[in-house]
Amino acid sequence: MPVLTPTVIDTARLRLRWITAADAAAQFSLFGDPVLRRYGGAAAWTRLEQAEESVAKALQAYEDGASLLFAITLPETGEVIGNTRLYDFHDQNRRCDIGYILAHAHQGKGYMFEALEATLQHAFSALDLNRIEADVDPRNHASYKVLERLGFRKEGFMPERWFVNGEWCDTINYGLLRRYWEHARRGDHGE
């Protein structure tokens, strides 16, 4: 597990910061939204206690190095509008998974691209990762499009991987190698 230290990342329009106990209501707003959770691999939360438990687990995961959860905030107001998360770290292989969520009112503005770009840069530089993986429901076009814009490559398809809200859901697997990321940042798209 990586050693995680409290981190704040400022982008052109956003601030990414570690989650705090005071963020439980904001987390509930995100993960309690059934539309946002439709493609998330689990049902929407129905109780604030679920958010409080999740925040407590995130705080413990910082200490354990098990997961890194960034709150995506608007710097001028401090409003939490979403999350990015690095989790399931594999030390020997220097890889992890990535997840993300963004409130409806802030979609379509390029915020998720900006937040993920900052999260990925942190993952490849500060955490020295070599590979980041994501799985996306193929019906979630916005999600896989942002991954592709960031350089993730489609690597596989798994039918009926998740059972959520009474329906089987498929997964597209995506991967991003550090060298792909570095080449894209230099404008060199070679392998």
Rank of each mutant, 00 (worst) to 15 (best):
L36P: 11
N130M: 11
N83G: 01
A56T: 10
R94H: 14
P75F: 09
L48N: 07
E155I: 05
F163N: 13
A71K: 04
P2T: 03
T7N: 00
L48Y: 04
A58H: 12
R153C: 13
F28T: 04
E133L: 10
R95W: 06
G82I: 04
G166E: 07
H189D: 11
F28A: 03
A126P: 06
T171K: 03
G65E: 02
E79H: 06
R37W: 07
D137P: 02
M112A: 06
F157L: 08
N140V: 00
R131V: 11
D10E: 14
V136I: 15
F70T: 04
A115S: 08
T11D: 06
H183I: 00
Y180V: 15
D88L: 10
S29N: 12
E191C: 08
V136A: 06
P138Q: 01
S54I: 00
M158S: 14
L30Q: 02
D170F: 00
N83K: 07
L68M: 09
E53K: 09
V8E: 13
I132V: 15
A26C: 06
N173Y: 13
D33W: 00
N130F: 08
R185W: 00
N173Q: 11
I172P: 02
E76R: 12
N93W: 13
R94C: 11
A126L: 04
L120I: 13
G82F: 08
L127G: 01
L68V: 10
I72C: 06
L129Q: 10
A123F: 04
G156W: 02
L120N: 05
T11Y: 03
H106T: 01
F124T: 01
R15Y: 04
S67E: 15
M1K: 12
